[in-house]
């Protein structure tokens, strides 16, 4: 464990908590893409199948349980409890265009052709594009509530901090995982224009407005 990975995990934890607070307090999931949340739930389910078979540490297990529970819980809140506030009209990104290519790629490009390894690889590839429906929805609505933009900033920062973690591990531990690194870079790059808007607008107290 290193400071970058810890900061990344805490940023990820913060993002999920911010999202749950937003939905619970406003009792609405307006502006949130349910499709992205479904993809995140798939990412965690396919990545944490070893939850009971491969114990790493109490921290690792606790975080996996939280991520699994919160992502499934968020899908429940969006599609069942606060279904009436879910914005179907703007959440239209075709997620099959994300699921199929990442599934095929994980069958072709992986470290080992085994069920667990392919599911892990699929989860890594899917996570790198899972935010697209959400970013697409923000571009379609043209704006986002400030709490939603804080959620996106924390979520985008988490994998950016993981990149620093991978640089640290390469130089100090001689460890690297090219699949996680390439996917992590793609994932972080997808947030770049949002990061620019967040830093230039939201941090100055303005609402996040995309140029129409």
């Amino acid at each position: 464990m290193n400071i970058f990975r810890l900061a990344g995990d805490l940023s990820h934890l913060a993002a999920i908590i911010i999202l749950l607070i937003k939905i619970w307090k406003t009792r609405s999931c307006a502006g949130i893409s349910g499709r992205s949340q479904v993809l995140f739930a798939i990412v965690f389910i396919t990545r944490y199948l070893d939850l009971f078979t491969n114990f790493i540490s109490a921290y690792n297990t606790a975080m996996k349980v939280f991520f699994l529970g919160s992502s499934i819980g968020t899908v429940y809140l969006m599609y069942l409890k606060f279904k009436a506030t879910y914005d179907h009209n703007h959440d239209t990104f075709r997620i099959e265009f994300l699921l199929l290519p990442t599934a095929l790629l994980s069958l072709v490009l992986n470290h080992e052709f085994s069920v667990m390894e392919i599911l892990w690889t699929f989860s890594i590839y899917l996570e790198s594009v899972a935010i697209l429906p959400q970013l697409f929805m923000v571009s379609k609505t043209g704006e986002a509530e400030s709490i939603t933009s804080h959620y996106l900033f924390a979520l985008g920062s988490y994998r950016g901090l993981y990149i620093l973690n991978w640089i640290y591990r390469y130089y100090f531990e001689g460890f690297y995982d090219i699949i996680a690194i390439v996917a992590g870079c793609v994932q972080t790059i997808l947030y770049c224009d949002f990061f620019y808007l967040y830093i230039t607008k939201v941090l100055k107290g303005k609402k996040l407005q995309l140029p129409a």
Partner: peptide, 10 residues
């Protein structure tokens, strides 16, 4: 070094 098998990252 090739990636280690034990996935210790979240």
């Amino acid at each position: 070094a090739p990636p280690s098998k034990d996935k210790d990252e979240l």
